[in-house]
Nucleic acid binder design. Structure first.
Lengths: 367, 367
DNA sequence: AATCACGGTCAAACCGCTTTGGATGGGTGA
DNA sequence: TCACCCATCCAAAGCGGTTTGACCGTGATT
């Protein structure tokens, strides 16, 4: 308590003043006494309760504005018992500490909804080992009213955990094998990849490579299922050499595609799980002396990331597109709804849109 | 208050129970009475105050662990007057709502530091119009103890604003023209780009294109200065047709490089402000039938983003590399220091490392 | 033996807001 | 005229911690 003396010689004390003396803030009691009213009445006036005279309310509102009064969030939180905040717990891939690239756009969407509702957004990123501890603490410290669960895996342990400790949550994605019902927002990954694959089949491609994400992630499994369903629908047996499952980075995409293109019967097309992997696939195609969209076709899944747009006007890649920012908005809205009125049966399944870009064309004639 | 009845038929009420009945939590008073001690003593024991018997302290700690006691953050915040939280206000480019791609890695680094210090990290993203309002509210609501200022512009108005309202802050980057001293963490952008350009000059390149970010951003100006300094140092006059300043997206990088390569005297090398733009530059080079690293050289600035690594083992691009995650760690640590003991003269200048990749080679002989 | 210092503990005030349970007084209906 | 109602407003009790100031034995000091 009380600040230490500054230990800087170069700058005048005057110019430093604001650093040492934060402005004293107006509080309820002071505002009330200025108005000659009780704190009770002022509080009610500001919060729109009916039992206060409209003339009084107007006076109060005017005074509040004039004195730049903002109720202290800390006090509100304690008094109401609500945190007025939600948490996003972002798992970092333990081995490489990779942040999921869709994360920024997702929370940009979610943040819109929270700020409109007067909620704060808390982020905690951590290696996935101490996830359980973090969720428990978030709950017992009363830091948040609910959380978003990111990057669900198969039969994800976080779902029973959160359910049992009674912390409201919404999952971004789904978790195959979960025993309990839980609220979620997800893209129809299976359908998207089935359509992408069928689109290539319709163009005459028969050997189609899958460059997928790591298949302990739920979405990656669904995507593979869609890919396999499409092949099976045309009576094509799948070739394990044409299916890779890796982290979704440029380098891994490059490596996977290079390996497949070196096969004696190389693929004439790829379905790729992410924009970033696809950049590596594109590089592999170029390095092999082939031309994208003519010699080799590529369909990607496009999360419509703001900093990695699939082209300005014409899409570079043909893609199944689904805005992850919109998913963020929906998940946030659903979480707020769950906080107000818990109901694990809520969910929202978003359909991806197939957009045609420059990266696909008919299968080349001579194999 | 009080939950509404569930309106779902499919699931048994038992399985829903956790959704309706969050577990009651242990609090100080209850813990104290279980121990036959006063709340005062228990509080002091847990917080390591000296005036409590070590035997008592041990008892208290054991009981706290046994009952899974966590002090309620809301109460601590109110009682101590500290928010125990810091804010990151992320400006969204108003026109396109683009999130800065380095953001995720920066806060991953910052988050490490905060969580070790027991601080929460609050994110708010918003169009840059209502920034001022947000900072003021963050302050007057008492939601945070300090903030990180992202993406500073020339003579950024946020610096005098925060200084005057007395909210501790650290800038990630610098703001040319600021009148007051302020704490910052930044990469030596000028030096990095000077070295990158000199490296290309040493390889014999004479016409070097600059694909820069938008030059109302402070870092972009410093980078251009470094580029120009290097050219001037060799007595080369710069050609405005070889300098572009755009949003750092793949498509813009592609466009800028394509235009330069179509000049009658095209560049034989590029200095590129970001990994993402460089992907577009690479595409432009390939589309022009040229080969990266042989016909055309490229040096990029690499923020060492976790999801967009510059190659797995060998760097794809020659680059000036500086980890933005490390910058996040430093900024966070500095902010915590400023909160504890304000001092606007703190700063940290990180030097980028020049790493040689596959994208550079000697200038081709016949121009 | 009386005094002092001190380690260990506690009661109570406080942080700034919400909310419960009255109080007050003018208007109404019988 | 009197009881009753309703519109307004307020005092005080939380919320769950921290922190101040006081208290009380005990061994050391004089």
């Amino acid at each position: 308590m009380g600040f230490d003396a500054p230990e800087c010689g170069r700058y005048s004390l005057a110019s430093l003043k604001p650093f040492w003396m934060p402005a004293r803030l107006m509080n309820l009691k002071e505002l009330a006494s200025k108005l000659g009213l009780s704190p009770t009445t002022v509080s009610r006036a500001l919060n729109g309760y009916p039992e206060v005279n409209e003339a009084t309310r107007a006076r109060v509102l005017a005074a509040a504005k004039r004195h730049h009064y903002r109720p202290n969030t800390r006090a509100i939180r304690l008094a109401t018992g609500r945190a007025l905040a939600v948490g996003h717990v972002i798992p970092l891939n333990t081995r490489h500490e990779v942040v999921n690239p869709i994360f920024a756009d997702f929370i940009a969407g979610a943040g819109e909804v929270y700020s409109r509702a007067g909620y704060d957004m808390l982020i905690s990123m951590l290696s996935d080992q101490d996830e359980e501890r973090v969720y428990r603490e978030l709950q017992s410290r009363g830091a948040v009213d609910g959380v978003i669960v990111h990057s669900p895996r198969l039969d994800d342990p976080r779902i029973p955990l959160l359910t049992s400790i009674g912390l409201p949550f919404v999952v971004h994605g789904r978790s195959t094998g979960a025993a309990l019902p839980y609220p979620w927002v997800d893209v129809n990954n299976r359908r998207a990849f089935q359509r992408a694959t069928e689109f290539l089949l319709d163009l005459g491609h028969r050997r189609i490579g899958l460059v997928n994400g790591l298949e302990y992630m739920d979405f990656a499994i669904r995507r593979r299922t869609g890919y396999l369903d499409a092949l099976a629908g045309r009576g094509i047996t799948n070739d394990p050499a044409l299916m890779s499952s890796e982290e979704m980075t440029e380098a891994r995409g490059f490596r996977a595609a290079t390996a497949m293109l070196a096969l004696s019967a190389p693929p004439t097309a790829f379905v790729v799980s992410s924009m970033i992997s696809a950049l590596g696939v594109r590089r592999a195609i170029a390095d092999a002396g082939l031309r994208l969209g003519r010699d080799v076709s590529v369909v990607i899944h496009d999360d419509d990331l703001s900093y990695l747009k699939n082209g300005d006007d014409v899409p570079i890649f043909t893609a199944t597109r689904s805005s992850v920012r919109e998913a963020g908005r929906q998940a946030a809205a659903m979480l707020l709804a769950c906080i107000a009125n818990p109901d694990p049966t809520r969910h929202s399944l978003l359909e991806a849109e197939l957009i045609i870009g420059l990266s696909t064309g008919p299968a080349p004639q001579r194999p």
